[in-house]
Nucleic acid binder design. Structure first.
Lengths: 151, 151
DNA sequence: GGAATAAAGTGGGTAAAAGTGGGTTTTTGT
DNA sequence: ACAAAAACCCACTTTTACCCACTTTATTCC
């Protein structure tokens, strides 16, 4: 399970050092083999252990081919899903298209999100986080599951 | 399983170098024998390992002949299906009709889509991708399978 | 508390691999 | 038989993956 926020720097070649606390876990879960794709709702990347991703890809592929919404999702998520591997120094290399999508420059933020990690531009994350906080205090419609949640 | 996005250049002869990550897979799956056809909804090409295509063609042929939509799909998909083979350098040659349909010039994008690959003009793909992202975030009617998808 | 040591993070050089561009030969179709 | 296109081959260029070394941060022990 991933959780917590880590500030990480992309280097000039687009490499990103995975925080130490996740490395052993990633080696155990998937031998350091990951899949990164885009989030369709936010300008950030989603990073999954490869086994975890395979399950999700299977679900997405099973959607009906002649449904336009399904095709859109397939193209966006599977189309951007990129295999990446931890190198000998515990770093991963992010392709330029992925970096561009999430507007990643040097300073980034890696968010633990249970089965996956999210990677954000630091600036963008700070702005969005403040917006999220503002939104919670002005809730429009919360799903029942949330209303009944006891923390 | 194909996934991910690759920027690939068509050369002056209409040849396209298949990215290394797919080559071994293609040799294993189908000895480098592929079938390319058009997508009926978008100006892009679909590229299948030949064995995979045979299954799909059988399904399409089995559609009811007196249904106009079925006949349309049959003519378009089966009618444009072209056998192509990997050459010694891992490249494939695309016929002019196919290139024209998908408006392919030099810069193209190859999208992994599970059992098949999709080939797009780079410009067209970038435009369509941005539209998809906008549409996904302004959902009219999403199928239930999509609404319940947990990523 | 501070020096010594270890661990993590960072930067960049290089060899190997992948991509690219044609020239030549063979096949195909008219 | 001829022209056009495809297949084949080879050489050059670019990119990537791998490796190593240095810097900075954290930890330990005196």
């Amino acid at each position: 399970m991933f959780r917590g926020l880590s500030a990480v720097n992309l280097d000039a070649k687009g490499r990103l050092a995975i925080p130490m606390k996740y490395r052993q876990l990633l080696v155990d879960l998937c031998a350091g083999r990951l899949v990164a794709t885009i989030d369709t709702e936010e300008r950030c990347l989603l990073i999954y252990p490869v086994d975890e991703w395979e399950v999700i890809q299977a679900k997405i592929e099973a959607l009906p081919s002649f449904n336009p919404s399904a095709r859109r999702i397939q193209r966006l998520l599977i189309g951007h899903a990129t295999d990446i591997e931890l190198d000998a120094n515990g770093r991963i290399l992010l392709s330029q298209p992925l970096r561009e999508y999430a507007q990643l420059e040097k300073e980034t933020v890696l968010l633990g999100q249970g089965k996956k990690l999210e990677l954000w531009s630091k600036d963008l994350w700070n702005r969005r986080r403040d917006e999220y906080i503002a939104e919670v205090n002005a809730p429009e419609v919360l799903p029942d599951e949330l209303l009944n949640l006891s923390l």
